[in-house]
């Protein structure tokens, strides 16, 4: 690009004009960041980059739990604040229940990085287990990233074809329900344990008579005196929650 003098005829080439536009956009983007560094693009749109941390391919419109980020601030702060975040996506397990997840917007091979949605509206196939369910959650243990319906969650089903079984739905990601199921009461039956160490219980999500969806869990009863105990077979109301955990002895 060459400068012109006063009175010269100005002819602007397309490439020159585009360079001006690029420069203006870059300057504008820099000003949006209070630190003076580039703002991560993608954050505002609800679309992020996810690396498939599993050993198998994941299809488009399936779910991956966001378990970590590829570049944390202690590794490279500049890159952390200025680049589109790359999350490490893993399959939903019982331990990861309640953690944030994204819906893939493109198929991802093992280890591949691609676009995924954490906020917005996206189609996805959901296994509708109960017609009353208004939310979708990743199915724990699913190696395909499948989704199922639930009474709570962060992905609201804003449209579905109707009836039960797997079907295409439109999901509104973010800004939806409780996410951890804390407001829902579950029927729990004591199998063993103590008030000190907690009780091994069987959880009946759909009530005492429905044994099709039961699973085992740990239940604590904070209000019982330390010398009290509950016999096996006792029925209790339990509320699911995520409790802080840390390491202990390895040997």
């Amino acid at each position: 690009m060459e400068k012109v003098k006063a009175g010269d005829k100005v002819v602007i080439r397309a490439s020159t004009w585009n360079a001006f536009i690029d420069a203006a956009n870059w300057t504008k983007e820099q000003r949006q960041n209070q630190l003076g560094k580039g703002l991560r693009s993608g954050v505002g749109t609800g679309i992020v980059l996810v690396k498939n941390g599993e050993g198998e391919q994941r299809d488009r419109f399936t779910a991956l739990v966001l378990s970590d980020i590829a570049i944390p601030p202690n590794v490279n702060e500049d890159e952390f604040v200025s680049c589109t975040p790359v999350f490490v996506g893993q399959k939903m397990t019982e331990e990861r229940e309640g953690k944030p997840y994204a819906i893939l917007l493109q198929p991802l091979a093992a280890g591949e990085i691609g676009r995924a949605m954490v906020l917005g509206i996206t189609p996805a196939k959901v296994n509708i287990e109960d017609a009353e369910d208004e939310y979708a959650v990743p199915t724990p243990g699913s190696s395909t990233g499948a989704l199922k319906s639930d009474a709570n969650g962060v992905a609201r089903i804003i449209w579905k074809a109707g009836g039960g079984g797997e079907q295409w739905c439109l999901l509104q990601l973010g800004g939806a329900g409780g996410g951890t199921g804390g407001e829902k009461a579950y029927m729990c039956k004591v199998n063993s344990g103590s008030v000190k160490s907690g009780y091994q219980v069987t959880v009946y999500p759909n009530g005492r008579e429905d044994s099709s969806s039961i699973y085992d869990a740990v239940l604590y009863v904070p209000d019982l005196a330390l010398d009290s105990d509950l016999p096996s077979g006792t029925w209790l109301i339990g509320h699911k929650c995520a409790l802080k955990a840390t390491g202990g002895n390895d040997t």
Binding site: Y186, C188, A217, V221, D223, G238, H239, K240, C241, L243
Partner: peptide
Amino acid sequence: EAAFLGSA
């Protein structure tokens, strides 16, 4: 880690 809190 997920756990249940219950009341008796």
